[in-house]
Design a binder for these strands. Structure first.
Lengths: 231, 231
DNA sequence: CGGTGCCTTGATTTTCATCAACACCTGTGG
DNA sequence: CCACAGGTGTTGATGAAAATCAAGGCACCG
């Protein structure tokens, strides 16, 4: 297997304060892995033996309830750490991580967490900064679920995905990984029927263009308005 | 002001691994404060100048949306750290903290965070463990809001409060701080009308007894069933 | 070329927010 | 000490939003 290049990490927050030789050390401890679309990186409840960095692709974090319903908690974008249960003193993963599109990932054994955070200056700080940001998003989601109507929630979810993974096309901005109506329903706490109706209506209005497992947003600003975000 | 006793902290997770003299040091750096019911410990968006430990009472963390709606994110119980924005690399508080009942709190300046976590072994680890637990709760809440019906959500909220703050009385278990119907609505993303109707119905069924700003749960197990928790 | 997964659309039903009115408790100030 | 105001709680009537029930179509894969 070819050696990984240091530039992969140099610009990412947890590593940005580190000198090249240190990055080399860290990289040499990592195992690169490839996951095809739909493959699980780890599963809810299993021992948290590793933590991960997403290099390329998109990963979906889901959670299954005792009742059997599943919800999509968040999407991980390239450059982000995930599965950082070890950083939070957990010994099992709180959710399942599935590759939303083909993904390339670096994995480190959980026991290295402690040495990374004590040895590499800024590593822990930067990581906890992203934990803080993620908690902020969770609060946001809760607030949204508690107060907003379904239409606004679906609009928000699309806006979020566009911001995280949008790719420009001639038709508008395309969400960068396959999404089904049912996925969107699991993100917003509604049903695929309602999502389908909303997308159809928006398509008639020229706000989005939908395809099979695909959404292209042609009028992002109008979607933001629909989402009821702060003006 | 009288000197604080070391035993206050010795049994609490972030300090439990520390020797008495170290606890003394930490305690001498703390400012004790008292907040009457309804007083704000800190407010959303303000510079996070301090972090806190709740010694006695209950603190409610709320968040206000651009639209003006307010939601109650969580309740802090005695022995827990809160306002730990500094630990997550934030320089403002993400929410507002209000004393739900008269509360006694220790406050430390935010800049001490870094030295605490590097100097005192286990302090950071234990704190991040509680951060992890709190994230777990947030996931839980999201899942609940996304999949459960109002009745189950209200039942869950009561169960949570009972677990956190329940006091045994002759009539059943009483929630340990004043709660209005409207508070419960803000926790569950519903309206005070619906909460009132549910509590009335449950009172007829002998599951709870309600009073002004008070809830006593007489049949906790039946409430757990209603909440749709895992069996 | 049959099957499965994904999507759409209509009809019906349920849940819960909203609108509305009133009762009660508690503390305050005249 | 009483009146009254503001916060709290109850309950009924109504309507809108979204889930559920139902049926079918289309695209992709083996």
């Amino acid at each position: 297997m070819s050696r990984l290049d240091e530039s992969l990490l140099a610009s990412l927050p947890p590593f940005s304060r580190l000198a090249r030789p240190l990055i080399r050390e860290i990289l040499d401890l990592a195992t690169p892995r490839r996951y095809p679309e739909g493959a699980a990186v780890f599963r809810e409840g299993l021992p948290a033996e590793r933590f991960f960095l997403l290099l390329d692709g998109f990963v979906r974090a889901t959670r299954t309830l005792p009742t059997g319903d599943q919800i999509i908690v968040l999407h991980v974008s390239p450059g982000q750490l995930f599965g950082i249960a070890p950083a939070l003193g957990r010994d099992t993963y709180p959710g399942t991580a599935i590759a939303a599109s083909e993904s390339i990932v670096l994995a480190w054994p959980a026991r290295l967490w402690a040495s990374f955070s004590s040895t590499y200056d800024g590593f822990a700080t930067e990581t906890y900064r992203t934990v803080g940001a993620r908690m902020g998003e969770l609060h946001e989601r809760i607030a949204e679920l508690a107060t907003k109507a379904v239409e606004q929630r679906v609009a928000s979810a699309l806006v979020r995905m566009v911001n995280q993974s949008g790719r420009k096309t001639v038709e508008g901005i395309e969400i960068g990984f396959p999404v089904t109506r049912s996925d969107i329903a699991e993100m917003t706490g509604t049903t695929l029927h309602t999502v389908s109706r909303l997308l159809s209506a928006w398509e008639r209005d020229g706000i989005v263009r939908g395809g099979r497992r695909q959404v292209i947003v042609s009028a992002p600003h109008r979607l933001v308005v629909l989402s009821g975000a702060a003006e």
